[in-house]
Design a binder for these strands. Structure first.
Length: 281
DNA sequence: AGGCAGGCTTTTA
DNA sequence: TAAAAGCCTGCC
């Protein structure tokens, strides 16, 4: 996928799939668009252009082989999101139902756990434009320079060794502020101390959060985001200031977590993005 | 023990 | 100037 190619393929997606909603859901920070019609997606060291052709048709600038070996999984196209939505009962849970109707099309991308760990450490106390900027600066600082199918350059997300090798000044230049130390320590742990992110893919949720929060700068919220977006634990349930408001406002007697196993994280995405669009900044 | 105030870099609105 | 998909430290 690194070489310049002119491969294109057309794909039909009949399940829930909305590029704009996914892009704006706050789980990915390296999607770019100018017209909400064509998106350039960066993931790890890979790049994909996706263009919406019609209601269900999409053009992708990759080969069938690349699609089946990487992008199909990244976009979580094997999962049936319509079926997951239909488990929500409009009568007993009108807020979640409304959220899922408005945000139909969101999917939980299968992103790289290392990339999510660094991205969500960076995310704390920052808004989305600032997160995007710092991630891009980090990639430019120590990621590999690549060229997409249009000949336009991009920088792959750096591996743990590359980040661990950065000086304090290099990290500071990425505008990470007090998070510099957290990013450095996480890179050291993964690159040089055997911190095994991949083993967490099959770990239970309690173990996952407990293990991730041993890293400095990783609290329950950031760990939950890594679990949901990087390890694809669809029951991980990140609770930030917005989710706290939702829980207080719509679920004063408690949230029915058990009822929604194993899709709590997916439902959280519907509620979070819905509430922010209608009530937030 | 567990809860809470204050500080932290920088950007954004 | 406050708020931003928070976390850590110190204090009670």
């Amino acid at each position: 996928m690194s070489e310049r190619g002119k491969s294109k393929m057309v794909l039909t997606i009949n399940d829930d799939f909305d590029l704009e909603k996914i892009s704006e859901s706050g789980q990915c920070f390296r999607w770019e668009t100018e017209d909400h019609h064509t998106y350039r997606i960066l993931a790890g060291e890979n790049c994909l252009y996706v263009t919406q052709l019609g209601d269900h048709g999409y053009e992708l600038d990759c080969t069938e082989e690349q699609f089946h070996s990487y992008w199909q999984n990244y976009l979580d196209l094997q999962e049936n999101y319509q079926g997951i939505r239909e488990r929500i009962d409009a009568m007993t849970d009108p807020f979640l139902w409304a959220a899922s109707e408005h945000k139909k099309g969101i999917r939980i991308l299968r992103q790289d756990p290392w990339e999510m760990l660094i991205t969500f450490i960076i995310s704390q106390n920052r808004n989305i434009p600032a997160i995007r900027r710092s991630v891009e600066l980090l990639a430019r600082c120590c990621g590999r320079k690549m060229y997409d199918s249009k000949g336009k350059e991009y920088f792959g997300f750096p591996d743990p060794q590359a980040v661990a090798a950065l000086s304090e000044d290099d990290l500071a230049s990425c505008k990470l502020g007090y998070r510099c130390r957290y990013v450095h320590e996480a890179a050291e742990a993964v690159a040089n101390r055997g911190f095994d992110l991949a083993s967490l893919i099959r770990a239970d949720e309690e173990t996952t959060i407990a293990t991730l929060t041993t890293l400095p700068g990783v609290g329950t919220k950031v760990a939950s985001c890594v679990s949901l977006f990087g390890l694809h634990h669809t029951d991980a349930f990140p609770v930030d200031v917005w989710m706290k408001r939702i829980l207080a406002e719509y679920y004063p007697n408690g949230y029915p977590f058990e009822k929604y196993v194993p899709y709590n994280g997916i439902y959280q995405q519907y509620m979070f993005t819905f509430y922010r669009e209608h009530r937030g900044t």
